[in-house]
Amino acid sequence: MNYIEKKISTNKAMAILAKNGIHVNEKETAIILDFLYLMAKYYSVDPCSLDAESLRRYRTQEKW
C-alpha cells in the first residue's frame, strides 16, 4: 500500500507504540501504519452530522 502523503514516520510510530508498551520492529510498524491509513481512508463519518444524541448511541454500555 502506498500513500502519497504519510503524516507520520515509522520511527515516530515506533516511539509512540513503545511509549504505550507495544514493542515492534520497523517492518511490523509499517504494517500497522498501512492498516491505520487504510482504516482512515474508508472511515466516512461527516463530523457535522454528529450531534449529542448520535454520540450517545455510539457510546459503550460501560459509560452509561
Score class of each variant (00 low, 15 high):
Asp34Ile: 03
Leu38Pro: 00
Arg56Pro: 01
Asn25Gln: 06
Leu33Gly: 00
Glu26Arg: 15
Cys48Leu: 13
Leu33Cys: 04
Met39Cys: 14
Leu38Gly: 10
Ala52Asp: 11
Ile32Tyr: 02
Met39Lys: 14
Ala18Lys: 07
Thr10Trp: 01
Glu5Asn: 06
Gly21Trp: 11
Gly21Pro: 07
Met14Ile: 10
Val45Thr: 08
Pro47Asn: 08
Leu50Glu: 13
Arg59Met: 15
Leu33Asp: 01
Gln61Met: 09
Ala15Leu: 10
Leu38Cys: 09
Ala15Ser: 09
Tyr58Ile: 15
Tyr42His: 15
Ala15Arg: 04
Arg56Tyr: 08
Val45Pro: 00
Glu53Phe: 05
Lys6Tyr: 01
Trp64Cys: 14
Arg56Glu: 13
Lys19Cys: 01
Leu50Ser: 06
Phe35Tyr: 14
Thr29Glu: 02
Ala40Met: 03
Lys12Ala: 06
Ile31Gln: 09
Ser49Ile: 05
Met14Val: 01
Asp34Tyr: 00
Glu26Met: 02
Ile16Tyr: 05
Glu53Gly: 05
Trp64Lys: 14
Leu36Asp: 01
Leu36Ala: 10
Leu17Val: 08
Asn11Ala: 04
Gln61Lys: 15
Ala52Pro: 02
Arg59Asn: 09
Thr60Arg: 15
Ala18Gly: 06
Leu33Arg: 00
Trp64Met: 14
Glu28Val: 05
Asp46Gly: 03
Glu5Trp: 02
Ile32Asn: 01
Thr29Ala: 14
Phe35Cys: 04
Ser9Ala: 09
Asp34Cys: 05
Ser54Lys: 15
Ala40Gly: 08
Asn20Ser: 13
Gln61Ser: 10
Ile32Cys: 03
Ala30Glu: 10
Tyr37Lys: 06
Leu55Met: 14
Ile8Asp: 01
Lys7Asp: 12
Ile32Met: 11
Leu17Glu: 10
Ser49Gly: 03
Glu28Lys: 09
Ser9Trp: 01
Leu38Arg: 08
Gln61Trp: 10
Ser44Ala: 08
Ile22Leu: 15
Tyr42Thr: 04
Arg59Ser: 08
Trp64Asn: 13
Leu36Glu: 08
His23Lys: 10
Lys7Ile: 12
Ala18Gln: 09
Ala52Val: 01
Ile32Trp: 03
Tyr42Glu: 08
Lys27Ser: 10
Ala15Cys: 00
Ser49Tyr: 02
Arg57Ser: 06
Asp34Asn: 15
Leu33Ser: 01
Ser54Met: 03
Lys19Asp: 10
Glu62Gln: 13
Tyr3Trp: 12
Lys12Pro: 00
Lys19Ala: 12
Lys7Ala: 11
Tyr43Phe: 15
Glu53Arg: 15
